[in-house]
Simulated scan of single mutants.
Amino acid sequence: MPGTFEKRDNNPQVDLTGEAAGLRWLGEAERDGGLVCSHVVHADAHRLIEERIEEGVPTREKACLAGAALARTHAAGAAWYGCPPPAWNGRGYAIGRSRTPVVPSGTVGDMGWGAACAEWRVMPHVRTICNDGLVDASEVRLLTHVADRMAAGDFDSPEPELVRSEGHACSRIHGDLWAGNLLWAADDSRAAVTGAALIDPMASGGHAETDLAMLQLFGCAYLDDLLAAYNEVSPLADGWRERIGIHQLVPALLHCVLFGESYMGLALSIARRYA
C-alpha cells in the first residue's frame, strides 16, 4: 500500500488548496485514460498530504503510455483560458514572491490563448522584472512587442484534435509540467497503466501546447516518444514545433522573477525569435 507525502509552505501568499483542487480536477480524466494523479488525502492553505507515487525508471514504453494519457488529460477540457479548477476560488498560484493569477469568469469574453496569456501571464512578469531593474528600456519594448503580437492572435492555433472533438474551449493543463512533476511509475504501481503520474500542478484552462513546451524547456526522458504518442492519439495543429518557444516565454520570465538575471538571456532569446 503506498504511503503519503506531506508538503508544507508557510508563504502567506500560498494556498495549497489550489494545488489540491488541481490534482483532483486533472485526476477526473483518469477514468477516460488520462494520466494518473496523486490522490489528495488532506489540504489546507499551508499543508497538503497526498499519495506518494511509487517511482520507477523511465523507458520508451512508459513515455509512449504517458504521451497518450497526457493527450486524454488535455481533452478533459476547460471553460476558458486561464480558468481555475472549478472547486477552487483562490486568486492564483504563488511561488516564492510570484503569483500566477487565475483569470476570473466574465473577464475574458471570447479572448483567445494569446490575448489571455499576454495580459494575465506575460505582462505581469515584464512589469516585475522591469521594477527589479533586470531589463533596460529597449528590452521592455521587445517583450511588450511580443506580448502585443500574442494579444493580436499572431500565435494562436487550434487545440489538439481530441480537445476540439469534445467541443471544449481549451485544454485542461497541468501548468507547470517540467520533468520533475511527471513521475515515472514503478512497474507494479497504480500509475503503471499510464507510465507516469502527475504531481505539483498549477492547473488551469490553457493551450495544450503550453504543457508540451514546458516538458521541452528543461528536458524530459524519451521526449520524442512521448510527443509522438501524444500526436498519434490527438494530432497537434500544423506548425506546433515552430510555436514551442512562444509557449516557453512565460516560464522563462517566471524564472527571471524568481531567480534573477541568470534567466534573462533565455527569456530575451525567446522574445527575439517572435518579435
Rank of each mutant, 00 (worst) to 15 (best):
G3F: 06
F5K: 04
F5M: 08
N11A: 14
V14A: 12
G18I: 05
G18M: 02
L26P: 02
E28L: 12
A29I: 05
R31A: 09
R31E: 05
R31Y: 03
C37S: 09
H39C: 11
V40Q: 09
A43F: 15
L48I: 10
L48S: 04
I49K: 13
R52D: 04
E55G: 10
G56N: 07
V57Q: 12
E61V: 11
E61G: 11
E61M: 07
A63N: 07
A66R: 10
G67M: 00
A68I: 00
A68N: 01
A68T: 00
A71K: 03
T73Q: 10
A75P: 05
A76Y: 09
A79F: 00
G82F: 03
P84H: 03
P85Y: 10
R91K: 13
G92N: 09
Y93L: 05
G96H: 03
P101N: 12
V102A: 01
G106T: 10
G106H: 06
G112E: 14
A116L: 01
A116G: 05
E119C: 00
P124M: 05
V126L: 09
V126K: 01
C130N: 04
C130T: 09
D136M: 10
S138F: 08
E139F: 12
E139G: 12
V140Y: 03
L142P: 06
L143T: 05
H145G: 05
H145Y: 09
H145F: 02
R149C: 13
A151T: 06
G153Y: 08
G153A: 13
G153D: 11
G153R: 10
D154V: 15
F155W: 15
E161W: 06
L162S: 07
V163K: 03
V163P: 08
E166C: 03
S171A: 14
H174D: 12
D176A: 11
D176W: 01
L177S: 07
L177D: 09
N181A: 06
W184F: 14
A185E: 08
A185I: 11
D188S: 15
A191I: 12
V193Q: 14
T194K: 08
A196C: 15
A196Y: 12
A197V: 15
L198W: 13
D200K: 14
G205R: 12
D211L: 01
A213T: 02
Q216S: 15
Q216G: 13
G219Q: 01
D225P: 02
L226K: 09
L227K: 00
A229C: 09
N231P: 01
N231T: 02
V233K: 00
P235Q: 02
W240E: 13
R243G: 01
I246S: 06
I246A: 14
L249M: 14
P251Q: 09
P251L: 10
A252D: 02
H255E: 08
Y263P: 12
M264Q: 07
S269C: 03
A271V: 14
R273E: 15
Y274V: 08
